[in-house]
Structure formats: structure tokens, C-alpha cells
């Protein structure tokens, strides 16, 4: 099954967003001072960088072109809400994003037309993310947020969840308009 333009765009979107997440977490891992937090942030950075590498390799293996210009989900969040450097926002954003990414990959894997190589890669990433959810690094963002003022955390959660919902709808509509599904697609 040859790779479709739609699938290659989606894989580039996933790849660029994973890389963006890694770079952001890496920047955080250069700014924080708490050692335990630095361990978690560095590991988080490495995990997302590895996912970006896996997605890069699968795009190449499918004969596709890696397009670094495909806007990431984080860029779309910032377009709606502005750029933030506040720790509470960066941590909440990371948490909202983790949930979104896992749900998006799972939904994508439910499609029948996913190329085998892409399916294998995404399934491996999902498995790793599920293991992380229960592993020794699970909950590190929640723990970090507990040390911050509760009202600020709750306000950030409300704000970024609203932004997330709007961005997801926007991306969904954009992909469907740009790459219409064949009528035979169920």
C-alpha cells in the first residue's frame, strides 16, 4: 500500500510535535534547579526525541519527505493562547499534551488504512507511553504541580484544556479539508 499524502502529512505532524516537545522539555531541563525534577525532565526530553527519531525513520522508509515546516500542535496552541514561559503553564501543557498525543495515536491506529510500517511504529510508541504511565517516572508532572499554588494550576488546566479542544478540532477540520477521505473509506 503506497503512502498517501494524508498519511505522510499526519506522520510529519506527529514527528514535528514530538520533536517540539523534546526541545521544550530540554529547555526546561536547562532551567530548573530541583535535581529530581531535572532527572524527570531530561528523561521526558529523551523519550520524545526518540519518538521523533522513530517517526522520522518511518517516514523515510515509506519513501516520504520529512517536512520540518509542518506546524506542530504546540505552535497551534501558542497561536491561540500566546507563548508562555511560566513553569505552571509549561508543566500543565506537557500533561495536557501527553493525554492528547496518546488519545490521537490510539484513534489513528483504529483506522484500517494505516500503512503497516506506520502502524508498527505508532503501536511501539503507544506501548512505550502506556508503560511510562505506570513506570517509575509516572506522575512526575503531577508531583511538580502539587508544589505550585493550587489556583494557578487549576486556572492553567482550564485554559490549556480549552485551547487543546479548539486546536484539535481545527487540525481535524484542516486535515479533512486538505486531504478529503475517499468515499469508499469507512
Amino acid at each position: 500500500m503506497p503512502a498517501t499524502d494524508r498519511e505522510l502529512w499526519v506522520l510529519n505532524f506527529f514527528r514535528n510535535s514530538e520533536l517540539h516537545g523534546a526541545l521544550l522539555m530540554g529547555r526546561l531541563a536547562r532551567s530548573l534547579s530541583d535535581t529530581a525534577l531535572l532527572v524527570h525532565a531530561t528523561r521526558h526530553c529523551a523519550t520524545e526525541a526518540r519518538h521523533a527519531a522513530m517517526l522520522s525513520e518511518v517516514i523515510e522508509s515509506m519513501g516520504g519527505r520529512i517536512d520540518p515546516k509542518v506546524a506542530t500542535i504546540q505552535e497551534r496552541y501558542s497561536t491561540k493562547e500566546g507563548v508562555t514561559t511560566a513553569l505552571v503553564d509549561l508543566l500543565v501543557l506537557s500533561e495536557v499534551l501527553e493525554t492528547r498525543v496518546l488519545a490521537t495515536y490510539r484513534t489513528y491506529l483504529e483506522r484500517r488504512d494505516v500503512a503497516p510500517a506506520a502502524r508498527e511504529t505508532l503501536a511501539a510508541i503507544v506501548s512505550e507511553m502506556e508503560r511510562e504511565e505506570t513506570g517509575e517516572h509516572a506522575g512526575w508532572i503531577d508531583e511538580a504541580l502539587e508544589a505550585l499554588p493550587r489556583d494557578a494550576v487549576e486556572a492553567a488546566e482550564r485554559r490549556w484544556r480549552e485551547v487543546d479542544a479548539a486546536v484539535v478540532k481545527e487540525v481535524h477540520d484542516m486535515v479533512n479539508a486538505r486531504f478529503p477521505e475517499p468515499e469508499t473509506q469507512s
Binding site: 517540539h20 526541545l23 521544550l24 529547555r27 532551567s31 504546540q74 505552535e75 496552541y77 501558542s78 507563548v83 508562555t84 514561559t85
Partner: peptide, 14 residues
């Protein structure tokens, strides 16, 4: 200049 570069810049300026 995207959000990532802006964050890098703001933290660098701080």
C-alpha cells in the same frame, strides 16, 4: 520565529 524560539529567547534574556 515560532513559540519554541520565543521561549528560548525569553529564558535567555532572563
Amino acid at each position: 520565529i515560532g513559540s519554541l524560539e520565543q521561549i528560548e529567547c525569553v529564558l535567555g534574556l532572563e
